[in-house]
Design a protein around this nucleic acid. Sequence first.
RNA 1: UGGGCAGUCGCCAAGCGGUAAGGCAGCGGGUUUUGGUCCCGCCAUCCGGGGGUUCGAAUCCUCCCUGCCCAGCCA
Length: 570
Amino acid sequence: MEKPETPITEDKERTPVSNFIRNIIDADLESGKHNFIITRFPPEPNGFLHIGHAKSICLNFGLARDYDGICHLRFDDTNPAKEELLYVQSIMEDVKWLGFDWGDKLFYASDYFEKLYEYAEILIQDGKAYVCDLCVEEIAEYRGTLTEPGKNSPYRERSVTENLSLFRGMRDGLYPEGSRSLRAKIDMASPNLNMRDPVIYRIKMTEHHRTGDKWMIYPMYDYTHPLSDALEMITHSVCTLEFEDHRPLYDWFLDNLPVPSNPRQIEFARLNLSYTMMSKRLLLELVESGVVDNWDDPRMPTLAGMRRRGIPPAAIRDFADRIGVAKANSVVDYELLQFCVREELNKTAQRVMAVLDPIPLTIENYPADQVEELDADNNPEDPSAGKRKVPFGRELLVEREDISLDPPKGWFRLAPGKEVRLKHAYYITLTRVEQDADGNITRLFATYDPDSRGGWSQDGRKVKGTIHWVSAPHAIPITARLYDHLFTLADFSKMEEGKTFHDYINPDSLTVPPTAMAEPSLAQAQKGDSFQFLRLGYFTADYDHLPDKPVFNRVTGLRDTWSRKAGRKG
RNA sequence: UGGGCAGUCGCCAAGCGGUAAGGCAGCGGGUUUUGGUCCCGCCAUCCGGGGGUUCGAAUCCUCCCUGCCCAGCCA
């Protein structure tokens, strides 16, 4: 077969790490079993995609890219009761945002309903499927248990003719929901429960988002998936570990039906991220109970949330590459994601200055009516990003955290009598501190060295500390949303007996400092623009951002060795 | 107590009979107008445990231990 063309976004140069799936593909290519590969990402359109799905997307599309194959996007829409158009749109948006392109390889399981129906009749003709009149409870009862075999359904030996007429009756809507089902005739004594005559068609009088009211019966996942894969000529059908037990059934359908190809199902461990919960149901609960604002709340592990937070898609792709693919259950350290985010943003984010918790500082020997426009690098990592002008004057605002009246050993920020550098500006020395009745610092006074313009001096004296600042009269007020983990529990598999995730919600997952100020250039920021607020972290203009009401989400802080060191020393 | 799968550094993860890759985290040092970035160095005599095969085992055999998944007309 000729390989059809599908474009897949190129990533940066990367050396893929070996994993067991690649080993299988390598072997299949080498043995000549396949000349090229076709994979697929098969989401059910019943919710928003999250970082766990991103692992699967990067895996499937990534394999296709690396092996010069193709990857299909297929909506697994066999249950009209739970699926909606809204979700198929958001899923397509998320996959595109992540940087992958399915070209014209967009499919729906519902595209195959007709074909699937024909296959079902073949199974019946061959005596390999029968219409069963047992209700749900009875089927469960007849199924047996993990340790005891099941019993055959009393309807198991119906004739082909009767089965055919009953099945057609089901299709034609003659029977109520739940009254009958079509079952594969396999083995009620199998130690694998999936093989105990699984239901393959159920009656559902529900309108489908694509096929409307055409169908009264809908195929089950176990039946639909292998056949859809075969029809699409998928070579390697990658899914998660919980489907391992379903593989014999997957193969059974392929072996017992005249399908055009023989895909192989391969299972890998789904992603778990520390301090993060990945279940669609629980995520929905977070939204509905108002713990978060919506599916795209920047604290959510959804792709929509991460996009809004300001996490670059390249960081997620890099993360997916770094975590690898294996069959062992694991919980990936959130720090790794943070690392990927910082690495990407460090290269690309423009540097600006903002003060989250401002204290006024007056430079007493600086002329009151003077304003200078100082040069500031936009990105020391990228000279081509150029420079901008930052206004400087007598009245400034500096960060409360950068002042200590009783500095610990190793402190090189503001302290009485200590000289520090104002980034891009001058050396200053703290001369006086005003405090309120409670001892809180309310105002600072300093002197500057006029010969240190630009932040250096002729004499080459060492000034170790450099702090950020903004000019008080020029600064603009901003809303800075500071995010932290949504949960206080790192590993949800370690949840205490009797507790739910509600018991582990972090009350401080969002904090908003009331008086944050930023340099005036930030008034030009556009929604979605990412910046590094010098010494504070990476921030992205939120969807709520407006030129006269700037709103920034903190994507992540900078690596902070000082606070760790200071914390350790008490 | 049935079946399936997994156990390699704090967290991921290569390794496939020839004597433990890499990343994150951590630690120490250097550069630095971001205590950021960058750079250098350190970080598993040992691969869940016990036996065995072999000149040689994380890799093969065997017994055991631990963890995860399965009894939807969900996917």
